[in-house]
Design a protein around this nucleic acid. Structure first.
Lengths: 244, 244
DNA sequence: TGACACCAAAAGATAGTATCTATGGTTAGA
DNA sequence: TCTAACCATAGATACTATCTTTTGGTGTCA
């Protein structure tokens, strides 16, 4: 082996080793699988990984064990490590979601997430109306007001930031930890929507009103009202997806 | 160290080693964390795990790396392996869901899953109406008919099996892989509901009708109709959860 | 003299390397 | 069809390197 114990030279593909050796190779292999450049059925070996990334067997093992726990690969004796068929992947693992959002298959992941958001947010709002703390209710109302201000002023960037905060707070205060775990993904969807110019230049008044309605309904503990109001927010998105 | 290298005797806590050493300790530690007997902030060491489970450092490392990738623990030099606060767990990891469903905290996990199901299934039905294959549409109609037959005959066990098949097929044919990944969890919720006697002794006619409506709507590609009909199925569940 | 702040050294844990044996599944050969 | 060789993982062991917490010592100030 050329690259030996000390953190010496010849690490052409290194950037400083700060994000930990293990993470780097996990990231590299994970991205390759998510992007499809290592399609299902592809076979790896620990030995190959050691050579390719200049790592020890232990690190190669650790990486594969993590990938295995995400169901991205399985390993069999005498065969090596085999890329699992897509159907069996743990598609809710945040790492995988991130890898896929960065890949050429980005669109599929994005629309899956959007649909998930459409499904979850109304129920989350209903949950918030029943279970949110007083502080959270107040914060939601404040954020809705802030959204109107920024929306009418046409400050899209600040609007996005507050919009994310609004929707994430909804997920946090709904009392369902599984919904809360979707926070990061929803933020990603909202960001992406703005970046790709899928947002109207100026938020429509109906959308602003709907956000205020959600906040008000949650504030007064009206679960049905909150759910309905969120539906109004999402109608725009549903239309864009052809979901009427 | 008492338990040493060879697969010798004195392994009191062994059952044959067939499910792989690594899995056994992953399971044990994972269950302990999920159940709360290793609360957030608890500290483990590789050395301690080696002694406790009679395993080598390699296996202990692998296990911890998997737990770390699920965000159940993090490890820091000089400190050891620390159980992560609940808020940060990857609560969508099927392994964790399974562990929690088997723990004393079962109820929390169960209601989270039920709420998730309430959120996702209507949108999944809409997706199926737009994207299911002809075979899937036909199968749904057939399953709905079978449900009526079994329901009216009062054959609860067979009814449950077909009910699971119906709802899983919906998730499979909706074209959203994230929804599809929830299949196992939905099956678990439905099973649990029956086992715990939360189902009426004989399915209500409204429920049977709603299943038929869903199948029919999907069959004719009516997304709105399918979504509404699923809502009717879930109304019963929503009431039971106090979600009106 | 006692209390506090600061700094340096020791120690304890993971991170990673290297190498070995055991096991089981594949494949090729009789 | 059976059998044996081989190959890759599963697991064990013993290192070194590194990071970070703890601890102990020192000096200053009240």
């Amino acid at each position: 082996m050329s690259t030996a114990t000390p953190p010496d030279a010849d690490d052409a593909h290194d950037g400083g080793a700060s994000p930990a050796m293990h993470e780097r190779v996990l990231e590299a292999v994970g991205v390759a699988i998510a992007a499809g450049s290592l399609p299902p059925g592809s076979r790896l070996t620990l030995e190959g990984l050691q050579r390719e990334y200049g790592i020890s067997r232990t690190v190669a093992r650790d990486t594969m064990k993590v990938l295995e726990s995400m169901n991205l690969v399985y390993s069999r004796r005498r065969v090596g490590i085999v890329v699992q068929e897509r159907r069996l992947w743990n598609v809710f693992d945040p790492k995988l979601v991130r890898w896929r959002l960065g890949s050429v298959r980005r669109d599929i992941q994005y629309s899956s997430l959007t649909e998930l958001r459409i499904a979850v947010e109304p129920i989350a709002a209903a949950g918030a109306a029943r279970r949110a703390s007083a502080a959270e209710r107040a914060k939601l109302v404040a954020l809705a007001a802030e959204l109107r201000r920024l929306g009418e002023a046409g400050e899209l960037e600040a609007f996005l930031a507050v919009d994310i905060e609004f929707h994430c707070l909804l997920l946090q205060s709904c009392g369902n930890e599984m919904f809360t775990a979707l926070e990061g993904m929803v933020a990603e969807v909202l960001t992406s929507r703005t970046q790709q110019g899928l947002m109207p230049f100026k938020p429509r008044n109906e959308a602003l009103q709907a956000h205020e309605d959600v906040a008000a309904a949650v504030a007064r503990g009206d679960a049905v009202g909150a759910e309905t109001a969120v539906h109004h927010i999402l109608d725009e998105v549903r239309n864009a997806m052809g979901l009427h």
